[in-house]
Amino acid sequence: MGLTKLNLKAASAEGSSIGDPSLTSVDSHGVAAVHAYPQVSLARSWNSPSGNFVEQSLQYFLFACALSSVLTTFGIVFILLKEMSGFFSVVSVWEFFTGTQWFPLLSPARFGVLPLVSGTLMIALGSCLIAVPIGLLIAIFLSEYCPRGFRVILKSALELLAGIPTVVYGYLALTFVTPQLAKIFPQIEVFNALSACIVVGIMIIPTIASVTEDAIHSVPGYLRDAGYGLGMRRYQIVSSIVFPAAISGFVASIILGLSRAIGETMAVTLAAGASPKLTFNFFESIQTMTAFIVQVSQGDTPAGTIEYQSIFVVGFCLFIMTLGTNLIAQFVVRRIHHRI
């Protein structure tokens, strides 16, 4: 034991010498060495541990990386606004927002965005009509009724649905869903809004189910216990305690689903066609804002032309619509956290 102590003291004195070579001369045997603390500098300098060049430049480098996301946002806004200013120097804002005809590639061209907006809203609302009840029921089933082991597996399987590329959904709508629909509704067109709604609906089920399930999950257990304590049955607890407590999460999931459906591109391009018209007939071909951008991009449109600018203007509308819905969803989610 004595040996150990001696060694330790040596270690201690050596330790004090870190960064201070003059200390090596200090007697390292026994008490005096431990007490003889020489003046050492603790100052930050170019070679101190957190002041040195590598340390500092790494921090700036990481900061620069984090800025990339801000630059992306500014980039998007700047570029959309820039092309938009060119567009609106030719087309009047009034015509754009109130016009009911969208023929950008014909002459005379018509730039009324309403048909594209209505097409987008048809898909968004139609797909939510399918996805919301299914997503909600799945969320309730997974969180309240499903055995624990299965839950993880089923949730992962749902994630698979979300991971399928959207172009695959488009292919499926075109070659599988529409032919099946045609058997029931013979009047349906080859390109139609309904089959796009169905596949987009399936696509956003995982979003709605997982956001709602998270909300249900965060309902505190004591609320449930209160129900059981009153002798309520499980369906009563779900419908009168759990669901009301999780309602903001559910609402947020719907809004997020809407936002995804608004921005969805490939499935609607393939399934719903390219006929911009102001209709609410789900059996007809329509065109969404996203599908229009794809349509123009497929051709080689020179920069500076009105067609080129038009996709940025439509893109701007899309950006504002999805940003708006996302902000609302965030606001709603934040409100749950405040309440619980």
Binding site: G19, Y37, Q39, V40, S41, L42, A43, R44, S45, S48, P49, S50, G51
Partner: peptide, 16 residues
């Protein structure tokens, strides 16, 4: 500590 105020802005806390 060592005659220096470790909350001084010139101090490197890692050395402390």
């Amino acid at each position: 500590f060592h005659g220096q105020n470790i909350y001084d802005s010139k101090i490197d806390p890692v050395l402390v």
